[in-house]
């Protein structure tokens, strides 16, 4: 089972490297999306493997997912106001 942790560690380092590399590519407005995409994958790896979310009771996974959803609601609804002001 230890291989799982090592695998996650290698994956995280690789993703970090890729993300760093991508930051040198002129992606324009997509730069932010790509960088946050890498971050989301990395957070998922930490949560699922290191924090054992996949094998946790359902309640814990539900809390973690719910928290992400509600943070997204806060950021998006506030942004919806700011960006539609005339």
């Amino acid at each position: 089972m230890k291989r799982r942790d090592v695998g996650a560690f290698v994956a995280l380092l690789t993703l970090t490297g890729l993300s760093l590399g991508a930051s040198y590519v002129p992606l324009g407005a997509w730069g932010m999306a790509v960088a946050l995409g890498f971050a989301a994958i990395k957070v998922s790896v930490v949560a699922v493997v290191f924090m054992h979310l996949a094998r946790s009771p359902r309640a814990e996974a539900l809390f973690a997912l719910g928290a992400v959803v509600v943070v997204a609601i806060l950021v998006l609804l506030a942004a919806a106001d700011v960006m539609t002001r005339t």
């Binding site: 991508a22 730069g31 946050l36």
Partner: peptide, 17 residues
């Protein structure tokens, strides 16, 4: 995890956004 999100916000996204 928090740092993984802060890193792109403050160090990586310097392109034309």
């Amino acid at each position: 995890c928090v740092w993984i999100v802060l890193w792109p916000l403050f160090y990586l996204t310097g392109g034309q956004a």
